[in-house]
Design a binder for these strands. Structure first.
Lengths: 126, 126, 126, 126
DNA sequence: GTGGTCTAGACCACC
DNA sequence: GTGGTCTAGACCACT
């Protein structure tokens, strides 16, 4: 059973969900450098989705430098994962930056945001 | 010349951009209760897009309780805009909360986020 | 000040509202046979709407045999109003018939409708 | 062949007829939770109308919480249809209440309405 | 003039 | 194949 999970009813494209899921696993050290990804057919079976969708996700992972594929052997996490972590964090920071700019636009002030962050730290939003 | 602006090159649907733009104008008090929106055809001309796209945006605004239309007379901002402002801010705060949770998940610490907010305040991200 | 009233924000066409309003006044005996209707311009002024709209309503009243116009003198309720009352009641009964058919379609039973009618009689729905 | 039907000659917008038709099918249990709706193109072909009109109807169903769509997969009835049934019945009862109030206003008495209901039960009005 | 509906036909991303 | 968006152009009722 794979650790990769998706939400079939989400509007987010399934292949993006897979990419995001793999990134998160790598980043948390659950998936290690050079570890093989589940085969396209296996994962397609487990998630009950079309193999083409898995294929697209793996291609995207390759394009982003997170995985590589050895024809006939399968797909693997790259050997060097340090940069993945950085990229992932930067991606999130970029999104937060854009959110916060919109918040200032909308008349939300810094104190409200600080309060929000505190409440998340304390787990009040779980 | 209308205050409603769009970015034709964005991947975000044009009609959504229009909805967002109007929301922002209402929320900043630039558009007042019961003030008429530009006519469908006028705005279509100004933004150089199809009238049907404007129509779709205005329908969505009506659905969200932000505007109402009087066929044959025009479209107008609703009389009561206080709740719109609140809803809009809450929507943004919810997005920030979700992204910040992801950030903590990804090992980003509070200091980094605080630094980010400061840099936005100073306009370094515009 | 005329007894004819409209709701400018309703989706029902204003001219239909005027027609309906006049019918109701006639039917209740508030407007008598051969009594003059307010002049187009006066009523337009009072209701703060376009004279063309009044004109259209009066034409419709004429078409339905409820009013007649004497060029240069104005519009008047017809001399014989008995049939108007019947027509008006039949119109309402037709609408109720259509509603009730839909209700049966939707699995609502006769008892529920009877209960509804009782509650209206007792003014619980005012 | 789909169960969704429209009357092309009616003045009621086609997309509204489709919405109403689907509601009725759901409410009668003919369409089940998570059952797929006909595809936009298929239904457009069967009803001989433009796909955009179907699209508009399906969007409205989604807005009303009756259907959901998975881009690339199709449109489906929501998983929880109990509330739809209630809402639909309440909507009809509200209309009946309003019309019956108008009837009493117009001097129609309860016996006439009861007679009307009986005649509908016996199918004399079909 | 206004908004509302509809058609015809195109392109896109996703599965 | 699917739904989602957009364009171009038409017709309608209403003001």
């Amino acid at each position: 059973m794979s650790l990769i999970t998706i939400d079939i009813k989400s509007r987010q494209p399934i292949y993006e969900q897979i990419v995001y899921s793999v990134k998160k696993l790598v980043m948390r050290g659950i998936m290690q450098p050079d570890e093989p990804l589940p085969s396209v057919r296996t994962l397609a079976g487990e998630l009950a989705i079309n193999p083409n969708t898995i294929q697209k996700a793996y291609s995207e992972l390759e394009r982003q430098g997170i995985a590589y594929s050895l024809p006939g052997k399968g797909s693997f996490i790259v050997s060097e994962t340090r940069k993945i972590e950085e990229d992932f964090q930067n991606e999130i920071l970029r999104e937060i930056a854009s959110n916060i700019k919109r918040a200032f636009d909308a008349g939300i002030n810094e104190a409200q945001i600080a309060e929000l962050i505190d409440s998340i730290k304390e787990g009040r939003h779980d």
